[in-house]
Design a protein around this nucleic acid. Structure first.
Lengths: 346, 346
DNA sequence: CACATCCACTAACGCGCGTTAGTAACGCGC
DNA sequence: GCGCGTTACTAACGCGCGTTAGTGGATGTG
């Protein structure tokens, strides 16, 4: 059983010769719809030859002649924070739906690395560019991006020149807090992130808004800002629980902090989802699913953001003068078992 | 500040006209080394024009003329198991080193999806193909892969026709067990995976080998097979600890099971890394780092496997008749704090 | 029988580029 | 003056393909 390593690639001309028609005819049956006057019989013979010969169009040559590549570029830090990989997933699915191919490159976030990645994309003549980050923040991209429709995902343009797709942090914070309120809690601790970052701002405003709506006064003693890691969640939860008037529920702005909070709660002999409710944020499956009890949390809609980004690219290609917009995607609450059963709606 | 959306792409000819030389000359200074007789002064003028005009070579056209694309394809299930994303990282880094670009596509693992992904790759005339999986197993790829050098990463060809890069599970299991032995343990529980899968086979053989080397008899009562999830780790650890002669250390074949085991151990009032040592496998940062205490575990060398895969591709391109090989990559032990301090080497 | 219509195709151009084969100008030795 | 070797370029082909402008034959129409 011999493989044919150096077998010359079969071209459209080969197919044409094989069938006994011109290359143009082959091109017509392969691309043109039914418009051209080519009878079914010829079509069949061409198609037959294509499979027999194993003909495969050359994407580069096709792009050269047709002047469009059907390529979208995706630049991401996925590599740093794998859990955001679902952005890629969503983007790929949407691209496939639109008949496009995704060229993916990663960046370490430095503007040098960004520039190189974008450069590569442009050399391949992508028809749209998505830049995705692993955490929600403002970015400033090299000016190169002006050459092609660009959409930011999970980040936004500090210069407000580019479209972006970002999660609705406030709504997420609201959903988490409201879930706790509806379970009957009225002293709800909040372990938030560095108040300077967008996620912290949004989640806090959702928290505040939910409390207000429920007529619960905001108690700043119940709010602690940390950096998102598990041990900080542990410390903050411990401080909360050992305080004068401890909360009966804790909303953690990251699942990792919730993971730490679990330890603090368990150490004190409380039972999670019973004595004390916990809600996280991020829906990092690996944590939320396997924590005991499993963690009710708010999902960052990575997959949908990726898809929205690509869909937006298509719109931009059609109309490049669309004013830059922030497209906000909802963060759904994912119910698991760390919150006590809700009080039946009154 | 007007952007120039539809600005026609500048071509090599534009650069030539601008400088007042022929296109060939431009091509020479851009690609040719110093071989051609082009004086520095002309070179400088061309280079100058390139930046002034913002010329960017067209990768497709170049590939068409030069008959090589400098593209490698990477097909992966990254999307299903994000934590294996480091394969992509390693592959990208290596590709960059070799001046290649990575075309990435994902598959859901179905042979249909595989075929489509490979087809896309081939249409783009990749010069090599990497197929990476999220867990170590045998795969069978569509015959299409015969058309281009192919390397499997984190999986192997059931037909033994393709090169593969796989982790040294046995050495990993050995390292984990030996670490425990050197800490003074001689009753070491082992929560393994489904014994049918390669990871379980390898890790067990490493476990057995280490025990043997230390003169510790294998006690099958200390070995439990589970499916890798946290709750199963919990159950298995509980069974081990509640048994007649409980172990003083547990080697878990996944970090997730270690996560569950932690709970079982803590519930029984033992202190991890003190009363009872635990070693995991996978080095899932998000778990291993943030578990309390942090988890000593064995790393799957994703990044290195990715890089090795790409490097292998380069070799294959040079010599397509290399006999299919399994390239085994070491799984390093990552020390954290879940094992009690080692007995000083005697 | 001349002419218009359709049908089923094909010749030929050009996309942007790498590359080969050449050319024109110049200097040098005799 | 001629031959020869450099130096500094350029003309032109072809990569595989989409596409436009045809062409030649069959069929209908008056």
């Amino acid at each position: 059983m011999e493989t044919h390593p150096r077998q010359a690639k079969v071209t459209m001309q080969d197919v044409a010769n094989y069938v006994g028609v011109s290359r143009t005819t082959v091109s017509f049956v392969l691309n043109g719809g039914t418009g051209n006057g080519i009878p079914q019989e010829t079509r069949d013979r061409v198609l037959q030859a294509v499979t027999e010969l194993g003909y495969r169009p050359n994407a580069g040559a096709r792009a050269l002649a047709a002047k469009h590549t059907k390529l979208y570029g995706l630049i991401t830090e996925i590599v740093i924070a794998p859990y955001a990989a679902n952005i890629v997933r969503g983007a790929e699915e949407q691209a496939a739906r639109e008949g496009k191919t995704l060229l993916i490159a990663s960046t370490d976030g430095s503007s040098d690395s960004d520039r190189r990645a974008i450069e590569t994309m442009l050399e391949h003549r992508v028809e749209g560019l998505i830049y995705a980050t692993s955490w929600h923040r403002g970015v400033r991209l090299p000016a190169l991006t002006a050459e092609v429709p660009t959409v930011l995902v999970h980040c936004f343009d500090e210069a407000a020149q580019l479209h972006s797709v970002i999660p609705d942090e406030a709504q997420g914070g609201y959903a988490a807090t409201m879930r706790l309120i509806r379970a009957g809690h009225d002293r709800i601790g909040f372990i938030n992130l560095d108040p300077a970052i967008p996620a912290a701002v949004g989640r806090r405003s959702g928290y505040v808004c939910a409390l207000e709506e429920a007529g619960i006064g905001l108690d700043e003693k119940l709010v602690i800002n940390e950096d998102g890691e598990a041990d900080q969640g542990y410390r903050a939860a411990a401080a909360l629980l050992d305080g004068a008037r401890p909360p009966t529920a804790i909303f953690c702005a990251t699942d990792r902090m919730a993971m730490g909070a679990y330890d603090a709660i368990k150490e004190r002999g409380f039972r999670i989802g019973d004595d004390i409710s916990v809600v996280g944020f991020d829906n990092q499956e690996i944590i939320a699913n396997y924590l005991r009890p499993s963690l009710t949390t708010v999902a960052l809609p990575f997959r949908q953001m990726g898809a929205t980004g690509v869909a937006l690219l298509a719109k931009l290609a059609a109309n490049r003068d669309l004013a830059p917009l922030q497209h906000i995607v909802e963060c759904p609450l994912v119910e698991r078992t760390s919150v006590r059963l809700p009080v039946p709606a009154s």
